[in-house]
Write a protein that binds this DNA or RNA. Structure first.
Lengths: 156, 156
DNA sequence: GCCTATTGTTATGGCGCATAACTAAAAGGG
DNA sequence: CCCTTTTAGTTATGCGCCATAACAATAGGC
């Protein structure tokens, strides 16, 4: 028989509060899931100096040589003003280069550098591990269903 | 026949970049989904002066009379230091009251006020609408599966 | 009565997001 | 051609949520 704590049940909901008003809310569950995802990412990637945004940029630059900043911002769904800052720090570290688009001196085209590729190679390994940890306990079908549902939710 | 833009296809990946390196990543999809959820929430709730955190507190206070701050913080998965600030603003607006726990003058117990209940009533209506919008296009089974997957992902 | 643990508060910094004001360059219309 | 409008990127600033550290007050164990 477990030893009773304070009052058995009635007055004080001290130990395990009633979470039911939030327990099945998409907003709440998304917040917790995203927080877990961020923590997991950070634990693996911070030694590499990578954040989700920084890795996303490098991945996109590898897959899209000479992509323009504005196009990249739209694809990643971040504001151009915020992308500017992100790119500046990556460029300072020599991970990418910005160049004027030929025939349009307003636009910047982006290229990943050799150093960027080297870091990206390690980043990909880490990211695979992060994804594995996040999907732990899910069947491949559940994983695919989750991705689909999230894509639907975000209308993308 | 659509009129061609610049070069037909070859050199410039300008219009629709390759998103494949991110398209099926949990981290990326979670970020977009959570952003959509936050925007949807904000659109409906900002006229009420409610943020996700503020509404969550009021919901929990209604369901858990005289809950202690620390217990609430743990349930909501926010740091006590951040909860302090959140509660201070809610108390300033008269939506809740803090009182010393009897027999333990360190601990604060929290009660929702009449004004808090009135706001909460409207908040619940808005939240139901937000949840409906987020779940749009999902069957009830898909919705339940999504919640389950998110709970699993966050280990809760 | 001391030492330690608990509970909450204050201060500060980071990260992602958003908006507004700005510069520079290109495009278009008379 | 010039002047206006549009496009592309930058800078500055504020908000929301998260995290840590330093602190104050109270409670509990020996």
């Amino acid at each position: 028989m477990p030893k009773p704590r304070r009052q058995a049940s009635a007055a004080a909901p001290a130990e395990a509060p009633d979470l039911s008003p939030l327990d099945s809310k998409l907003g709440f569950r998304l917040r917790l899931a995203q927080q877990t995802a961020f923590d997991t990412f950070h634990r693996t990637m911070s030694p590499l100096g990578l954040t989700p945004g920084r890795l996303a940029v490098l991945l996109m630059l590898e897959a899209n040589p000479s992509i323009r900043q504005g196009v990249l911002a739209e694809a990643l769904r971040i504001k151009p003003s915020n992308l500017t800052v992100l790119l500046a720090s990556l460029e300072e570290e020599g991970l990418l280069k910005r160049a004027e688009e030929e025939g349009n001196r307003r636009a910047n085209t982006l290229q990943i550098t050799q150093a960027g590729r080297a870091l990206l190679k390690r980043g990909k390994v880490g990211e695979a591990e992060v994804e594995r940890q996040l999907a732990e306990g899910m069947t491949p079908e559940e994983h695919a269903t989750l991705i689909t549902a999230l894509r639907l939710l975000a209308r993308g």
